[in-house]
């Protein structure tokens, strides 16, 4: 059973349809990429999952149950627009937000201390948020998101504004949480980040799901039979006459094979002609390429 099921969700605002019949499923323990350009409807979709907005049509199911008022306690949400009470102290702010998420005072306190220790920020309990650096605030923000041990964590553009050290720290934590069975939805318009982290993705554009599946499978589906060959020495132009060359420089070629041709066929031609091959790689399309292709087609 999927942790999250989005079933034909529609959300209209007075002058436009932000989500237009979106359906997809997210499986337990996966890191799931919710992708799309700015304005595609990602944030609206997330706000529907987090019960901030109500869908006009369709339904959202969490662990098989239709979204109800108890579900927010099982979801951790880090909005793209980060926010904390500037004048409140770190400790009391975390306690307040954790209790709003349904934790008891005692459990909240313990979990907060654990997380603060993990991030080496034990001494910040009585510091006001406005006294902290941007990076420190991001750590507090992350703890707010995960402190109540949610089953589903939604991160909207989590790496925006993070320096490389903190990016790595948060990335590691995301991986840890995922390994412990937490499901994570990672929303972004920066496709290259997703390729590294996510196993499954859904691609939305103009409120519609235009692509859905495993990253590896999607890449496989969209590959164009292209291979890059690096070689030593010269290649005779006659040799290339029967092949489609997409790109070349002094030491490498990119070939696009015809339908029916395999990489072995290409290798055979090259070897038979005495080309000294240094490397031979299949070129898979990036999600960015796939996205651009889908949107412009």
């Amino acid at each position: 059973m999927p942790v999250l099921k989005i079933d034909n969700v529609v959300k209209r605002f007075h002058n436009k349809t932000a989500v237009n019949g979106a359906s997809f499923e997210v499986n337990k323990g996966k890191i799931f990429g919710l992708l799309g350009p700015n304005g595609a409807g990602k944030t609206t979709l997330i706000r529907i999952i987090t019960s901030i907005l109500k869908a006009d049509e369709g339904a959202v199911f969490l662990n098989g149950e239709k979204l109800n008022e108890f579900h927010p306690t099982q979801i951790g949400y880090m909005p793209e627009e980060r926010g904390l009470y500037k004048k409140m102290k770190v400790g009391e702010q975390l306690l307040y937000l954790a209790q709003l998420r349904g934790m008891s005072y005692k459990d909240a306190k313990k979990a907060i201390v654990d997380w603060m220790t993990k991030f080496e920020m034990q001494d910040w309990w009585n510091k006001k948020i406005e006294e902290l650096s941007k990076g420190m605030q991001q750590k507090v923000q992350f703890i707010v998101t995960v402190v109540h041990s949610p089953k589903l964590i939604i991160l909207d553009e989590p790496f925006t504004g993070l320096d490389p050290v903190n990016t790595e720290l948060i990335r590691k934590e995301i991986m840890n949480l995922s390994a412990n069975g937490t499901t994570i939805i990672f929303s972004t318009h920066r496709m290259e980040q997703v390729e590294e982290i996510c196993e499954d993705i859904v691609l939305v554009n103009e409120g519609k799901v235009i692509l859905d599946g495993k990253v590896a499978k999607i890449k496989e589906d969209f590959k164009e039979n292209k291979y890059k060959v690096e070689f030593a020495g010269e290649i005779n132009d006659d040799l290339l006459s029967g092949l489609e060359v997409e790109d070349k420089d002094g030491s490498s070629f990119v070939f696009k094979l015809d339908i029916g041709q395999t990489s072995n066929d290409l290798l055979k031609i090259l070897l038979d002609n005495g080309v000294s091959i240094k490397s031979f790689n299949e070129i898979l399309p990036s999600l960015n390429d796939i996205f651009i292709k889908l949107v412009t087609d």
């Binding site: 706000r47 987090t50 019960s51 901030i52 927010p72 306690t73 979801i75 949400y77 909005p79 627009e81 980060r82 926010g83 904390l84 009470y85 500037k86 937000l97 709003l100 998420r101 349904g102 707010v144």
Partner: peptide, 13 residues
């Protein structure tokens, strides 16, 4: 709360 953007976190709870 609106300017701080914390409101989005609160109203998700």
């Amino acid at each position: 709360e609106k300017i701080n953007r914390i409101v989005e976190i609160i109203i998700s709870s």
